[in-house]
Computed example of a mutant assay.
Amino acid sequence: MTKRRPGWLVPVIVLGALLVGGLLVAPFLWLFAGPATTPNPDRTTHVPAEEPLRIPAGACEVGEPHFRGSGPADGELHGGGLAMPLPAGFAFGDPARMAYAFDVALVDSPEDESWAGVGALRIEEPYHTPEQASSTVTACLARAYADTRAEITDSAFVQLPGVSRAHERTGRLTLEGSAREFRVLVADTYSPESLAVYVRVWTPGSAGAAALADAERDLAKR
């Protein structure tokens, strides 16, 4: 006479088989799925000053900022094919602030350390496209300020009168005891040899910031 198994034994055997199978399969599922990622809620990219964006060595000193092309003497800021009015209260400053560029025209306001400049970038590594070049110039900007972090708050293609396409990055430079905001814009002006670059750095809430913003409204290729 065959002995009957208890009714509770079959569910226990099935449950045990499922548990063992799950333990064996789980590591393979994790391997193919990869580790979980945590979303960045504010979509802000932090760029350390010590190695911002891992740009090639020397990329921030490849220009000739004091080399000037011919431009109209109309009282505006001209460089790299871009132009804008001279901001109120500003004077021409040292083009060496933009050592990665040539044909640089730069103005600054010693009162609040705001400044802006236009110039040209040779189309070469790492300045091949407006998007790549704006990333490199942002990294150079962060590197120029000792112990600085650049927080990129926006990165996008933008419209600029007279150019094929333009890419900009905006954000903040965190300094010891103070902060600056910045805008880096690189444009394709149809030149086969160079891109145009515009950089603006300002102290939030200052008179210089307002003057720069007002002049920037007329930034264009001309």
Rank of each mutant, 00 (worst) to 15 (best):
A210N: 05
S134K: 02
G58K: 13
M1G: 12
G162F: 07
W30L: 14
L29K: 08
G171P: 00
M98W: 02
D94I: 00
L31N: 09
Y145P: 01
A57V: 12
T44E: 13
C140Y: 13
T38F: 00
A179M: 10
G63D: 05
A99Q: 05
L212Y: 01
A33D: 11
P192H: 10
W30Q: 11
A101F: 00
S155L: 04
F102W: 07
W30M: 11
P41H: 11
L82K: 03
M98Y: 01
P72R: 10
E193L: 15
R200Q: 12
A101K: 00
A150L: 13
P35C: 03
E113N: 14
M84E: 01
T148I: 03
P6W: 15
F90M: 08
T148Q: 01
E181M: 08
E51I: 02
A26L: 10
A213L: 03
E113M: 11
G177C: 06
P204K: 14
H78P: 09
F28K: 08
M84H: 02
E181C: 02
L106M: 08
V47I: 14
Q132N: 11
E168W: 07
V186A: 06
L18E: 03
P87G: 03
P35K: 15
E113L: 13
E168K: 01
Y145W: 05
E124T: 11
T136Q: 05
Y198E: 09
P65W: 06
G63L: 05
L31E: 09
I123Q: 02
I123Y: 00
A116Q: 03
G81W: 04
R217W: 02
P27Q: 12
R200T: 08
A88R: 14
D103C: 04
L18H: 14
H78A: 05
F32I: 15
G162S: 12
P204F: 09
D112P: 05
T189Q: 13
A196I: 10
T129L: 02
I123R: 07
E113Y: 15
G34Y: 14
P27G: 12
A116P: 01
A215F: 08
T189H: 06
V186G: 01
V137S: 04
T129R: 07
G21P: 03
R54W: 12
S194T: 10
